[in-house]
Nucleic acid binder design. Structure first.
Length: 104
DNA sequence: AAATTGACGGGTG
DNA sequence: CCACCCGCCAATT
């Protein structure tokens, strides 16, 4: 597996409880803002194996991006358990809940 | 070895 | 705000 992929996994694992990150932000932290698609792919294939808190990922608009209803509900449930608020449109207020990693 | 796959993002109209 | 287009990366098939 490539370094980039590892960094993506690390980045996701480092998202603290009660906060969320966008897919693009993860790609950026991992060193390649253009590798968003790969982030998505990782979630599909490796989220179980690497025990990733995938529920802390939302798209750039702050929406929960899962299509499958059950999985989406599961994500919302988990977020709410961490006191992340979700509005009627299934959106999270990024201003309040987005995790901004310490740069260094 | 080539094609496919994805839970995306930014720009445009 | 919505709809569409196209660029992008690497694990899998």
């Amino acid at each position: 597996m490539q370094l980039y992929t590892k960094r993506v996994i690390d980045t996701i694992k480092n998202i603290p409880q009660g906060k969320v990150m966008t897919y693009g932000q993860v790609a950026e932290m991992a060193g390649n803002n253009r590798g968003v698609r790969q982030v998505v792919r990782i979630l599909h294939t490796m989220s179980d194996a690497y025990d990733l808190p995938w529920h802390r990922l939302v798209n750039a608009k702050g929406e929960i991006s899962i299509k499958d209803e059950e999985t989406r509900d599961f994500q919302m449930y988990n977020l709410q358990q961490e006191s992340v608020e979700i509005d009627d449109n299934g959106r999270v207020d990024l201003k309040r809940f987005q995790f901004i990693p310490p740069e260094l």
